[in-house]
Structure formats: C-alpha cells, structure tokens
Design a protein around this nucleic acid. Sequence first.
DNA 1: CTTATACCCTACAAAGGAGTAAAGTATTTT
DNA 2: AAAATACTTTACTCCTTTGTAGGGTATAAG
Lengths: 174, 174
Amino acid sequence: MMRITALEEYGLRCLLNLARLGVDRQMSIAEVAEREAISVPYASKLLALLRKGGLVVASRGRAGGFTIARSPDEISLYDVLTVLGGPLVDPNHCNRFAGQRDTCVHLGNCSIYHVFQGLADHVQDFLTETSLEDMINRKAVDFARRKSSGPMLYEGPMGSRDSAENPSGNFDAS
Amino acid sequence: MMRITALEEYGLRCLLNLARLGVDRQMSIAEVAEREAISVPYASKLLALLRKGGLVVASRGRAGGFTIARSPDEISLYDVLTVLGGPLVDPNHCNRFAGQRDTCVHLGNCSIYHVFQGLADHVQDFLTETSLEDMINRKAVDFARRKSSGPMLYEGPMGSRDSAENPSGNFDAS
DNA sequence: CTTATACCCTACAAAGGAGTAAAGTATTTT
DNA sequence: AAAATACTTTACTCCTTTGTAGGGTATAAG
C-alpha cells in the first residue's frame, strides 16, 4: 500500500517542470523528457494524461509546447495524483475484493472498510493542502500533530547534498 | 497510490478470522477459505505469508490449523501490512524511479521526496496505532484533528445492512 | 505550398502481481 | 504400519501496468 506508481511519480515530475515556469512560459516534450531523464515517447504519454486531466495546456505546431493550466498554488497534489493514478481510494473496492462470489461476504458489516476510509480521509486532507507551489518552495504542510513553526526546509534523503549532477543551472529539481 | 493490494486485503481478512479466535483456538485453511469466499490454495498462500511474517503459527497433521501468534491487541495494522505488502514506503524509491540513468536526476535535491516522506510518517502513525483488536471492536483511532469522543461505530459503505449472507452465525465479519 | 517542428493517437512487447494447480511433507487416527 | 487429514512448496497461467514504437495531425517559417 502507499506505493507510488510510475505514472504518478514521473507525471508529477513533468508537471513540476511546467509549474516552475508559471502560466506564461511553455516547454516542449523533448525538453521535459531530457530534464527528467525519460524517453520522449514516455514524456508524451505522461503530458497527454496531464492534458486530458486539465492540468496542462498544449499548443501544437512548430512553436508548440506545454503550459501549466493554472497557477501552481491552485493545483494540489491531490489534483495531480487523481489525474495520474485514478481516485485515491478505489470506489469499487468492495466489489474488487469480493472473492469468488458476486458480492463481498462482509458487505455492510466490514471491519476493514471504516479503518481504511478514515485513513484515506487523512491522506486526502494532506494531499489537498499541499500545492505544487508548496512543493517547489519545499514548504511542508502543517498536518496533524506535526508542529511546524515556519516553513520546514528539506534535508536530503541520504545526507548527500553534493551528488546532484545538473550542470545546467536552473530548474534542476523535481 | 494508496491502493490496497489483493495480498494485503485478503491476507488481513484471513488474519482477522484468527484474531477473533484469540491465541487459544485454531482454524484450518479450509475454514478460513470458506469464510472469506476464496479458494483453498489461495488461502494457503496467504496464511503461509502470515506465518513467515511471524503473525500466525501453524500446526500440521490431522488436527492441524492456524493460530494467531500474539494477542490481537499486540498486532498493529502496520505489522500486518508490512508482512503482506512489504515496507510501507519503498526504501528503494529513489532508485526505482531513476529514469534512464543509473541514479535519479534529482537525488539530493528532490521536491517530491520530503513531501511523501512526511505523508508516509503520518500514515505509519495511524497504522501503528490501530490494532487488530481495534478493528474487531470497530474502534477508530483518535488521529490528527479528528475528534472522536468515545468509540466510533461503523456505518456501512452503502447503507445496506441486511445484505450480509452468512447463515453460519458467528464470526461473520472481517 | 512545401517543409520542418511538435503534439496526438493507437497498438504492442516486457515485467510484475493475482490466483490456480499439483505434488510433497508432517501428524494423528485406526 | 496404513490411511486420512492438513500444512508446504514450487511452478504455471492470466491480467494489469510499464515503457516503447510508429504513423498521424496541426502550426509556423520560408
């Protein structure tokens, strides 16, 4: 559980590239692909998903490219993950896990459902309150019992801060 | 994201059957399979996983069966999901999504990592504080800003309470 | 109007998870 | 002992997801 799918991970990364540009500037598929070290066809697929989800706008032709559809502070992580990975909790859950019968044995009397529903609510709160702008600024949401006085700055995943290999200067991070 | 895998869902259900029996009584694979409406081979697989994870104890032979390894209030949902679905957050995440390179472009400078890490911490808190005993008793954990005065009772997923089809009487629910 | 550029769409091969099948091992009963 | 019961293990098939491939469509420059 809580496994991020490849679509969600790479799709979010692609979107963050556009988010950093704001609503005025655009970026081509090729450039997004290069920045994320993924193939051009794959980046195409991801950006098409984001476009169908209304998060980015595409312009075709020679001077074409993608632009983020709204200001980054008006797009939540929940929006993005919903577009890329489907609904946060499967609305069809009780139907998917019905075992060998047509309807789940526990339907209407389930020890699991209410717990996962409660958890999903919290996760949704968290994701809804985190915007792309927050992610870009490395600002952690003040959630639950976590006391954050002021913006919380990020400490690298394995303490190594100098391992980034991006000579290009700007817009390195996703 | 947050998708429950089949192993987690059905494995947890099987375990709940044993949890209701307590540490004294046992149940055979065949009976677990019937209660969960899954095939006997599949129940075998799930219970074997739970056994390898130390959550249940098997006894072989004619009077064999499975017993829960510890008291249900000493087994957390986190324990169960870890055994059935691997670690909550993939410790290899930054390596899995490295794109076409050997190391992720954003390693050491990632906008995503700290957000998901923060979320995962909260989820882990929730899961750790929820025991099998809580689930059996339909007791929601007091988590985050959710104000729960007294045990929260469960209301069915779609309002239909009379659709459970278990003539057997006891231990219907999972 | 031709060409180059860039997005769009459908279909396909590879990898991982879901669920099944069958033969093997241990224990109890007779 | 022999047979019945019940757990154990390995291998296999099916389906979903991942990532790729290639041809199609739109726009802008010359």
